[in-house]
Design a protein around this nucleic acid. Structure first.
Length: 390
RNA sequence: GGAGGGGUGGCCGAGCGGUCAAUGGCAGCAGACUGUAAAUCUGCCGACGAGAGUCUACGUAAGUUCAAAUCUUACCCCCUCCA
């Protein structure tokens, strides 16, 4: 079923794994970070720039492309790869996260109890999720079958079963019912996938169960006993970093470790290292590219001026006359040519270049970070990586 | 010279007798952002004070009024049109 895909673990240190994930569009060295190009574009940067910054794989979102311009439209242009001009590996997310985000807003908002007044998730039932399209307000229904069909039209190498991303504030009863429904949806995803399989794609199962250990355990069993190529850990990971690590650890327990393991939605520097130490192979997150657009440049620990932040905010006036690059030892095109003072000015002057320049730095930063993690696993030591990067 | 319009907090700009220390926007400051409804969102933003509050404020000066950024008069400055 997955004859054009392979996942080989070529090294390990404690629970961390060094691997190679092979896809029809090339292989991915793991641990790896997947950048979010939700609407068929990593905001502000071109595929060439992504590649120059050492990017291995990019993700797009089924919900967004389903709403506009439709997966059929993209299929008619060849494939998502062709449409966006990226020849490397691609992943599409199923749209399951939008059941959460269009109903609750951001993860932080939901955890902090801020209500999103203009939710566009209409309802969710056994069949699927009804949305008011973010694009034109049309009522639309996303089901496991439709998500898989759309993902097959898009043609990404790695695709994800349709699930519900459960909120932090759901009680155990809801989390359990939602998990069971997600399992049924994932089964339907798998059936639809197998029915249409042309060996060009590999399907991820998703582990749900919220913050509840016994539910995570049941979800792990579900994932293991179904013929998914890989496993993603989804749903809420809790309200604090401490809880996040605990939940990830619970969700890893008993998981089939021969499969690649993806941690959905995590992208903090120390969070990633922690995930790697727990055995995670791939991560995806909007954080590096989003904070870039908000003026945040990721920096290694020696460049930081705040203990609880992994980036510096170039909008701050303290950078107005800082003639240094973001990081003196960074080889990205932004650090080679631009000073913090210039980037500060560009942000203040509302110049679009600021956004792409900082995004490029953050992408390069993440890719180098993952590089060093891989080297660390090979060298049987992640402490140096932790000291330097976290 | 004649006719008209206007001068508001760092800037732009509402308000046109009390509920105005004065709507908005920008700038400034602080914070948030983790399977992207996000080049976004939140808070602060005259001075002093932890706060209640006190003081100083809407070109300048004098008035009317219980009460004025808002009304009257004079003056100063700016703009438009006519000569």
């Amino acid at each position: 079923m997955y004859r054009n895909f392979r996942f080989d673990i070529i090294g390990s240190w404690e629970k961390s794994r060094l691997g190679v994930l092979e896809t029809p569009h090339g292989s991915i060295k793991t641990p790896a970070f997947i950048f979010c190009g939700t609407k068929a574009s990593v905001k502000g940067v071109s595929p060439q720039q992504l590649q120059e910054a050492g990017t291995q794989i990019v993700l797009s979102n089924t919900y967004h492309l389903f709403s506009y311009p439709s997966s059929e439209h993209i299929k008619k242009r060849g494939s998502l790869h062709k449409f966006i001009g990226w020849s490397g590996p691609l992943l599409t997310d199923s749209g399951g996260f939008q059941i959460f985000s269009l109903g609750h807003g951001s993860i932080a908002d939901e955890i902090k109890g801020k209500r999103s007044s203009t939710a566009t998730l209409v309802k969710i039932n056994e069949e699927g999720a009804f949305f008011k399209s973010y694009w034109n307000g049309d009522l639309q229904l996303l089901t496991p079958e439709k998500s898989i069909e759309a993902q097959q039209n898009l043609g990404a190498d790695l695709i994800v079963s349709f699930d519900e991303c459960t909120p932090y504030h759901s009680d155990k009863k809801y989390t359990e019912q939602s998990m069971e429904r997600s399992h049924r949806w994932e089964k339907r995803s798998l059936d639809e996938f197998m029915r249409r399989n042309d060996f060009s794609q590999a399907l991820y199962g998703v582990v749900q169960g919220g913050v509840y250990g016994d539910l995570r355990k049941r979800s792990v069993e579900f994932a293991n006993e179904n013929p998914f190529f890989a496993t993603a850990i989804g749903g809420t990971l809790g309200a604090s970093k401490k809880q996040m690590y605990e939940v990830v650890e619970m969700a890893m327990e008993g998981l089939n470790m021969a499969r690649p393991i993806h941690l959905l939605g995590i992208g903090g520097i120390s969070d990633i290292l922690k995930g790697v130490e727990l055995g995670i192979d791939t991560f995806d997150c909007v954080h590096p590219t989003r904070i870039a657009r908000h003026g945040g440049a990721l920096v290694k620990s020696s460049y930081r001026n705040s203990k609880n932040r992994e980036h510096i905010n170039l909008k701050k006036s303290e950078y107005a006359e800082d003639d240094n690059p973001i990081e003196a030892d960074c080889d990205c095109s932004t650090c080679r040519y631009f000073s913090r003072a210039y980037l500060h000015y560009l942000l203040k002057a509302n110049e679009l270049l600021a956004l792409s320049a900082i995004t490029i730095h953050n992408i390069r930063f993440m890719n180098k970070f993952m590089d060093e993690i891989r080297k660390g696993i090979l060298g049987q030591n992640l402490n140096d990586v932790r000291n330097k990067w976290c």
